[in-house]
Design a binder for these strands. Structure first.
Lengths: 153, 153
DNA sequence: CCGTTAATGATAACGATGTATCATTCTCAA
DNA sequence: TTGAGAATGATACATCGTTATCATTAACGG
């Protein structure tokens, strides 16, 4: 083990491949995010990825999410008083619906609203965010009976 | 000091006044929030109230904010990745503008948008929130020269 | 196959926000 | 005026989401 090729892999390659090594963990993470039809929290990613890749750790999830955002294929969905969620980047401009019953966040149809004019004079609107809160279809159905509208007692 | 009225204030009054005792601190807190034309964070409240009431502590601010919300005269303004802000309750339905330069949050004009239809079928929209991000008038003006729009180098 | 070294997983540490504790001060009804 | 106890201020503590540390594992170019 101590001859000729000691200096083999030394400083040979400079481009280790954009996106890093293809590990089971990273593949699982990319898959669950791609297949989810809604933005996922780090914990949701962990749980889903664990099914395909048992033993995967939360640190790995955070690392993959962070580099995904840096590499540009992931985008962060921030809602008030909620942990960050992540979805694939590059979709059409859209907003989200937060179900207060099950806590899931859903994507809404692409948004063509122009809100520039709603700010006071002199204000420069660079971006807008619209959030809807309520019950998703599943939860609205489940809870409907309990939600009767004020018939006397 | 140890006669007749030992049992005076014992369990005499049940109604200590809704809203509690009128202290300098609470008065200062209510004043700064009332006078501010925008929602304030706990720290902003602390700083502003400190001017009228030197030595006031952050715990007092948090306590007053919490009971203000419980009593109903204060409402919480939550934006993504931001600490809670507080404004007087009871205003017309409105939204907020978050200046990315100075970080201040401003109230927008009352909102008459109806967004019920934008959710998928079966979804029940109970509330909506609109956020604008950009530069407030002051910051837009200050930074304008630096913001030139892509004239070659 | 081999070695370099990036990636992993367990977990400690972190920063931010907010709450609990507790001795002291101050309000306010009597 | 008085005193019960609400409110205060200093600060310890709790929580949450996330990042850093570090020894171990494993991807992959040669």
């Amino acid at each position: 083990m101590y001859h000729s090729q000691m200096s083999r892999g030394a400083q040979s390659l400079t481009a280790t491949r954009a996106g890093g090594r293809r590990t089971r963990q990273r593949r699982a993470i990319v898959e669950v995010i791609t297949e989810a039809q809604r933005p996922l929290t780090s914990n949701e990613v962990l749980e889903l990825a664990s099914q395909r890749c048992p033993g995967i750790g939360i640190a790995t999830v955070y690392r993959a999410l962070r580099s995904g955002v840096e590499e540009g294929w992931l985008s962060t969905v921030e809602l008030p008083s909620q942990p960050d969620r992540f979805e694939r980047a590059g979709k059409e401009h859209h907003h989200h619906f937060h179900c207060r019953v099950c806590g899931l966040v859903f994507e809404l149809e692409p948004c063509e609203l122009r809100v520039g004019g709603s700010a006071p004079a002199g204000f420069l609107v660079e971006e807008h965010e619209i959030l809807l809160f309520g019950r998703c279809a599943a939860c609205a159905q489940k809870r409907n009976p309990a939600k009767r509208v004020g018939s006397s007692s």
